[in-house]
Design a protein around this nucleic acid. Sequence first.
DNA 1: ATGGCGTACACCGTACGA
Length: 260
Amino acid sequence: MIIATWNVNSVRARVEHILKYLERQPVDVLCLQELKTQDADFPREPLEAAGYAVSIAGQKTYNGVAVLAREAPADPVVGFPHLPPDHPLNAHKRLLAASVGGVRVISAYLPNGEAVGTDKYSFKLAFFAELRTYLEVEVARHPKLCLVGDFNVAAEDKDIYDPEAWAGGVLCSEPERTALEALRAVGFVDCFRKHHAEGGLYSWWDYRGGAFWKNHGLRIDHVWATPELAATCTACEVDLSPRKWKKPSDHAPVRAVFGG
DNA sequence: ATGGCGTACACCGTACGA
């Protein structure tokens, strides 16, 4: 089973890119983040015509996540199911869980945090803390669990092109890294790191200043799997091609191959 | 260098991203 994740920065603006990507790199499951679209406006038809069933947790203008799969995603769960729908942490559509081929997949768009010390930064840390609670339950329920998406944290300095310039800032501050490690410690393996020890490999590059062409990036999009599933992971790669196409997302897709 | 670039929504600018 091949599982990919991609922050597309608007699904309506990127539908041609998504179709082109799926044509060139067929996957079994594609998790999308930053749909920026309510469910009614999601471009369902072209994606279904390409052979993918769609489960959506959309929202007008901001956020929004989806799970696309060759077989219909089963038992979809939006947001934090243990919190009421009107809870502030459920106000953003940032989590969608679904089951495909015996694997529980969670498409996650974790908050950006804006800047250290802001209200959005506090919201980010609260979201991570709540996600830990949710994942503890899900890991116990699903031995084959795959958490993917835009986590908005660079785990190590080698995930940053200029760690000195970014030191202490949002996306790599110690509280964020501690919160990220607390999620991982629930019981996940970073599938990309399983296959790549080196730095300089990123998943996001700023639109400004030709950052991509200078490889001024961050690795903030992740594929994590529980040990039972991660043991079968034979490859995990960032696909740089879509970032080179015209009008790209600022993120590249990350794909992982699970066998056995 | 609080800009630089892109998207959405609404309006001819503002919010937001990472």
